[in-house]
């Protein structure tokens, strides 16, 4: 039965996505947001792994067992930010109230043509920053990420705004970071997300929300190799049409002593995990890692 539903949803999704896109662009945000309720319900009922991940996460974030309503709110928050990507990419972002905190951190570096690393996470929306930076302010920004496997939605979003889609530097090629080095020396901002360990990439264990879990070592290793400043960013969705983008100076220059490399990388990564935890508590429903982040399932088995 589950398998069947899975197949159905796979087949149905490109059409459903196009329908939602049409409604959003033709009938506006208020109407489109009504559809978020059945979508939330659908995922609440049928997306079991995501629902379980949400439950495990909320249990930590709220420090109590979450109700079904909490989980629904979590999914709804995620769906809201996906829908808003449509308006942002289609240059209809005026319907959103975006407030930026500490923008001068980035603007000063851009003015001095000094390249930097802009380190984010899957907490909140990343598109809100990307569109503002690229389309509105024409800032030199590149985003380092793995090619998206969520093909349908990626294609739709790329078609909406090819300029923004062009900012991606795909990870996974041997020469990827040589390219990053070249962009940094030209004064580019290199955006990346530092909370998900993908495949067999290097990771280090950090305490996060009260428990040890692996974080990628890559961002700190890259920052120390490039000797570029690191700025943190969090694009938090605050409900309604409101977003808060926070910038925070993480380090002017990360130095890692080769002899104590593993320990020092762990310390820098732990510092990042601490800041991520701080912002996660500020906006707990913005946690968009809908998978077994702390390996809870291994522990119960």
């Amino acid at each position: 039965m589950t398998h069947k539903w899975h197949n159905l949803s796979e087949r149905g999704s490109p059409f459903a996505l196009r329908l939602i896109l049409w409604i959003a662009l033709h009938l506006g945000r208020t109407t489109a947001r009504i559809i978020l309720f059945p979508i939330t319900l659908y995922f609440l009922l049928f997306a079991k792994p995501q629902r379980l991940a949400s439950r495990h996460y909320l249990n930590r974030a709220l420090k109590r067992p979450p109700t079904l309503k909490d989980i629904a709110r979590h999914i709804h928050c995620f769906a809201s930010t996906i829908l808003d990507r449509v308006f942002l990419l289609a240059d209809q972002g005026d319907c959103l109230d975006v407030r930026i905190h500490n923008a001068e951190l980035i603007l000063d570096l851009v003015a001095q043509k000094e390249g930097c690393i802009l380190l984010g996470s899957h907490l909140g929306s990343f598109e809100v920053l990307r569109v503002l930076a690229v389309s509105h302010h024409k800032l030199p920004l590149k985003i380092l990420m793995y090619p998206d496997h969520n093909q349908h939605i990626t294609q739709i979003f790329s078609a909406l705004n090819p300029e923004v889609a062009d900012t991606v530097i795909p990870l996974g090629r041997m020469e990827t970071l040589l390219e990053v080095d070249e962009y940094i020396s030209q004064g580019y901002i290199i955006g990346m997300l530092g909370d998900r360990v993908v495949g067999d990439e290097r990771s280090t264990s950090c305490e996060f929300m009260g428990e040890q879990t692996p974080f990628p070592e890559g961002p700190m290793l890259l920052a120390s190799t490039l000797k570029a400043p690191v700025i943190l960013f969090f694009g938090l969705y605050r409900g309604g049409n409101r977003y808060d983008i926070h910038f925070e100076l993480f380090s002017d220059k990360i130095t890692v002593d080769r002899k104590h490399r593993a320990t020092e990388l762990q310390q820098h990564t732990q510092h990042y995990a601490n800041r991520l935890e701080h912002y996660t508590h500020m906006a707990p429903y913005n946690w968009f890692n809908f998978y077994d982040f702390w390996n809870d399932q291994d522990k119960t088995n």
Binding site: M174, T176, L177, V180, D181, E201, L226
Partner: peptide
């Protein structure tokens, strides 16, 4: 890289530097 010496992209960057 990869199969041989098992180096990755960060190694490529360090090596090129």
């Amino acid at each position: 890289f990869r199969d041989g010496l098992g180096l990755d992209s960060i190694d490529a960057l360090e090596l090129s530097l």
